[in-house]
Every structure is written in C-alpha cells, then in structure tokens.
Design a protein around this nucleic acid. Structure first.
Lengths: 295, 295
DNA sequence: ATTAATATATAGGTTAAAGCTATAAGTTAA
DNA sequence: TTAACTTATAGCTTTAACCTATATATTAAT
C-alpha cells in the first residue's frame, strides 16, 4: 500500500471514472487501472464495481475510503507544517517543570521572550518520573527536575541543591520551633506527594535518617492541595526551598530542617540523542544562570 | 513522500543507527541512507544530525516524527479492518431515519436481526436535508425520509403517504373538533421543525393551501421538544400519522386534517452509484413490506 | 600518533515496478 | 448497426529503489 495509490483511489471516487481521474492525475488510464488492480490484489478485495458507463464503490471500497481519508489529510498537513518550520526554525519550546519550581518561571520566560519574541514557551507541570518519559518521547525539549532515577538516554545537569522545610498548621507545636531536626519528625502525620514525585522520595529519605517510617495521611500531585491540607490541620509536609521563597506563606508555620545532609538536587535534563536548536540551549542557560545568581 | 520512507525514518528513530535499522528493514545501509536523503530533499530540511557514532533527531526530525506517527498507525488499522471486512463481508448497516419514524424501527430491526444476527444496525436520526448529505458522503447505507429536494445521485423509492394530524394543548378549542380543515388553522400559533426538515415544508404547504402564512412561535429539531411545547400551551403543531400511531398521546388533543390533498410522502433513499451488499437490500425490502402490511 | 573498529556517504550497476502507447473488449445511446 | 464512450490487456520504456564495493569520517584502544 502506498499514499500514491490512495490518491489514485481517491481521485476515481471523486471523478467517478478512471479516464477522467487519470487525466487529472496526469497519468494514462491503463496505468491507473493497473495500480488499482494491484491495490485490490494487495487488500484482497474489490474496491470498485466497474461497468463501462459507471464506476461505483463496493462496501469494501467505502470502508477503504473512510480509512484512507485521515492519511491523505495528514499528509497535506505534514507538507504545510514542515514548510512553516523551515521559515521560523522553531515555533515553540516545550519545558517540563516540577510543581514546586513554577514560581521561578516568570523571570526566565521574560528573559527568553526578550530575545525570542516569536517563539512560544509551553509549560508542562509534572513529577520527576513523567518528566523523564516526556523527554524520551520528545514531548518536551528540556525539564527542570529532581531526578529519582537516571536514564542513559538523558543528560543531567545539576544546577542547585535546595534546603528542605516543614510546613505545619498554624496551631501546631512546631510554630515555636526556630528549626527542626529529623528526629523531631517522629510521630507526626504527613501529607505527601504521590509515587513518581521526588518529594515523596525525599520525605522517605529524611524519615529513614531519623530511623522511622512516616505516617502518610494523604497523597496528592498538586502542591496547592498539600498546602490546603496542611492549613486545614490534616498533617505536616516537606517542601523545598524554592516553594518557600516564592509561595504565599500565611496561615501556616514554616520551619527549616537542619542538621541533615539531605538536600534536594535540581537538574536540568535533556535528551542525549537530540539535536537542539539554539533557542533551547539559550533557555537552558537562562535556567543555569538563574540559579547561580540567586544562590 | 511515501509510507515506505516514513517507515524507514521511524526505524532509524527506533534503532538509533542507520546500519541497525537497515538490517531490521531487510535493506542495505546505502539504500536506507539514500532514501532518507531523498526524503530530506523533498521536505527541504535535515531530519537527522549524523555523526559516525550517533544519529540524533533535529527539531524538524522531531516534528516529522510526530506528524507521521498517526499515518503509520492508520495504515496498520487499514490492513486489519479490510481483513475483518473480507471475513464478515459487512459489519454494520447504517440507516438514517426521520425522528417521526423511529417508532416503527423495533419491528424491522427484530426481523433483520433474525436473519443477520452478527450485523449491527446503526441508527442515525436526522432531517431530510442531512439525510441526503449523509448518503452522498456514504455515511449511511439507506435512509427513510420525506424528500424536500431530489438529487441525481440518489434513488427514491416511495413506500407510503402519511396522513397529517394536528396536536394541540388539552384545553385548546380544537379538543371538541372531530376533524380539522386547513382553513381552521388560520390565526393559530405553530410550533415547527426548523429548516431542513420536511415537516416544516409540509406546514408551509398546508397553510398556503388555506391562503395564509403560519405564525411560527418556536422552531426545533426534536419531536419530543415539540410535544412538550404543545403540551405547555405554546402553540399547535403538525405531526404525521406514524407519530400518532406509535407515540404517547396523553395530555394533548390529536385531530386529523381532512379535505386536504396534502400527504407526507415517505421514500426509501439510496445511493445510485453504490454497490450494496445483500443485507442492505434485504433491510430495504423489510421497510417496504412493513408499509404494505400496515397500510 | 597510529591502528582497528564502526559509522554514514558515494559511485556505479541491476532489477523491479510504475509508467507509456496501441489496441481489445464491453456497454450505452443514437 | 454503428458511434462514442468506457475499462482491460499486451508489450515496451523509463524511473527509481535496490544492490555491492568502496570511500570517508569519527571514536577508542594500542
């Protein structure tokens, strides 16, 4: 099967005769007949009921018509989109980012937009696991993440290591603490990120450092939800430095964790086997510089 | 551009080297290189960044990958579906029917299912105009309709002529009438089908017979809505015989229109230039017989 | 630095298939 | 019966997909 044959078939459906279709396709009528014959042989069923006066579609032909239509449409789209791409070079940059880091985007995006006003930035919020998958599927150009595993298809560029904090309800005993050590956390109820998010791994690591398993009351994928649950008194949660720096912090206590070696590494991750256009590299560097400046 | 080339491209993406991909495709490495080169020339952009050690996708390559994926998927589907069709011959029959006639379907479908238990019947309710369009697009095999125009691509098989009735609110003066003549309708408020439905044309014809233009209070596409509006006292409506025969009739008055030559013709319509399989012809005959039996 | 290994690209010839012209065979309408 | 129109067949030509052999380029190891 062949797009060319599909187009031939389509033309016959449109013009209702082989002869007319062949003319419009700029091929001879015998060639067209022969191609349709080959196609029918390959599919194992007759597509047209031919008489000398009229050509009609068989049931199989109708089905085939319905099946090839999206292919022909998509083929046209390919030519158009590749043409667009040639002119602009790059239409949009897709970036993956952890929910805890979205707050630092405005500054970076502003910087990027100044240099590349015509390139759109698409932001995809997701956890560490999904970010690696998205990169491998070429859905995003680069990601800012805290890796929980390492893929050989990706490059990991460390940019920062975040301190960790505890957020607690306003009336929680922790409100009087100036800082927290890991052993203070024993016996507390926790709100945690779900599987595939690095903060979950961090929580487990921190607790295992103090020698206990955390009592996780609730798991979710959105930082805002965690904040609401903490405020409402369901438990305490671990959050990273950048969340504290940029998020609204009223109605809850924020206490730093000290005397722990555990930090949350932030990496920019990119595909190894992908050639990136300049704007993407620039964006990567803006991220990198941002962390150097603010640390 | 060519599905074969798309498959070649896809294989290189998958196996990351030309040599490996060529092996899996059962062609030589130079042939594969040449094909990709041709493809790149046609598209006007480079798809791979090649070094001897690694092959990486360019931005254009990523885009191309995303664009061809649906085509490759659809191609597989074509082979599968055409294979299925060969075995079963016909998987489903699509019929178009007027909303006013759906009530007579159960009996006909039962009859059809007895003979063809493995063929599904898809029912599409629509107005006369849409039914002709659907037939011409091969979306339905046959339609039961009351034609408001005649297309040279369709065959029209008259099967019945319906009497016409008026439905009116329960407290409407018509409730005492044993029958209605067209002149009785002067000055009434009407609920009508919208453009493209034959009952709208019928209403206009009936009123013009009595020499006036109807005052249409509300237009809609669903018979059930019309019934509700009539019951709630918004106006009266013309309905055909088969609606009266099979629909629930409480909470409103139903009065026959007499001394009018106007009937509502019911036709089975089919494509002229389409080869129909036997089950469709049988279904057509079931419709035909049904009307002979019940008239 | 040199060499071995491994990758893609190029050159030139072979083969398969898509194309052509000419003509046959079938159908409809005058 | 014939003229006009259709699709199908026969046989040849041309295009392009494919091959092998070899060149070129890069990496890794000696």
């Amino acid at each position: 099967m062949d797009i060319r044959q599909m187009k031939y078939f389509h033309a016959i459906v449109k013009y209702k005769t082989f002869t007319k279709a062949a003319q419009l396709l700029h091929i001879s009528q015998p060639s067209l007949s022969s191609q349709i014959k080959d196609l029918e042989k390959e599919l194992g069923c007759v597509l047209f009921e031919r008489t000398t006066k009229i050509v009609s579609l068989t049931e199989a032909g109708i089905n085939f018509l319905k099946l090839i239509t999206p292919i022909l449409e998509q083929e046209n789209r390919i030519y158009q989109e590749m043409e667009d791409l040639k002119e602009i070079g790059l239409k949009k940059v897709n970036i993956g980012i952890l929910p805890s880091q979205v707050f630092l985007l405005p500054k970076i995006i502003l910087q990027f937009k100044k240099k590349y006003p015509n390139i759109a930035i698409n932001i995809f919020e997701m956890g560490s696991k999904d970010m690696e998958k998205s990169l491998e599927k070429y859905d995003i150009h680069l990601g800012l993440t805290s890796p929980i595993s390492y893929s050989k298809f990706l490059t990991y560029l460390p940019v920062y290591e975040e301190e960790l904090f505890i957020i607690a309800p306003f009336d929680h005993p922790f409100k009087t603490y100036s800082h927290i050590t890991t052993s203070d956390l024993i016996g507390q109820d926790f709100i945690s990120y779900k599987e595939g998010y690095s903060l979950r791994e961090i929580l487990l690591k921190v607790c295992s450092e103090a020698g206990f398993k955390p009592n996780i009351m609730y798991e979710c994928g959105r930082l805002e939800t965690i904040r609401q649950l903490v405020i409402s008194g369901m438990g305490i949660a671990i959050v990273p430095e950048n969340y504290i720096r940029f998020a609204i912090s009223d109605k809850m206590s924020i206490i730093k964790i000290v005397k722990s070696d555990i930090r949350r590494p932030l990496n920019i991750i990119m595909s190894k086997d992908r050639h990136y256009p300049k704007p993407v590299h620039d964006l990567k560097n803006y991220f990198f510089d941002f962390f150097i400046e603010t640390s």
